[in-house]
Amino acid sequence: MTAGRQEKIRLGFLTAIEAPAQGFLGGLLVTNHLGRPLEFQCTSPVKPNRTQELLYGKTLRPFVLAELIGKTLLEKAGVKPQVVLVEQQLLLELRNHIASPLACVFREDDVEQESNDLSWGRQILRVSVDHTADIERLRDQLAVLPNDVDLFEPFQRVDQALKEALGSGAAA
C-alpha cells in the first residue's frame, strides 16, 4: 500500500450550460487518468447585458464561454490539467488563451473525421485550426488512457454538478 496520488495525467473536462434566467454557468472537473475526481470548480452565472448582446452579435457566445468562463476556470484551477477536453465546439476558441492542448470530443457517429482529427476509441478529438500541433501532444499524453475509455461520461458529472450548483444558489 502506498499513500499519495499516482496520476499519470490530469484531464480537465470543461463544459458550460445556459440557464434561461441566470445566464451561462461553466464547470471544470479535473480527474486523474482513471476518471477519479481531483478538483472541481464552477463559475457563478454570467449573464451578458443588452449592450453586449448587441455589440458582440454572433461572437458573444464564444466570448462568454471561452474568454470569460473557460479562461477564468483554468486560471483559478489549483490542480492544473495537462489536457483540456471540451464538448462544445465554441470552446475551441479558448485554446487561444491557454497553453495546454485542448480538444473537442465528438462521438464517432456524429461527425466526419477530418485530417487533423484524432480518433480515440469510439470518439473523435478535434483541435483548433490554429493549433493543429496539439494533435501530437494529445496523442502522447492520452496514451495512458484505455482505448475503451468513455470521454463523455465525466461531462455528465460536470453537467449534473452544475445543475446542483444552480439549484443550490451557491454559485449565484
Binding site: G4, R5, K8, E39, Q41, T51, A165
Partner: peptide, 25 residues
Amino acid sequence: RWQESRSNVKTFKLTFPDGIEFLPP
C-alpha cells in the same frame, strides 16, 4: 460611450481528498 471590460467571474472550488492507493497499476 462603451468600452469593453472583462467581468469579474466568481468561482466555487471543491478539492477532493487524497485517497489511498492499495495496488500499483
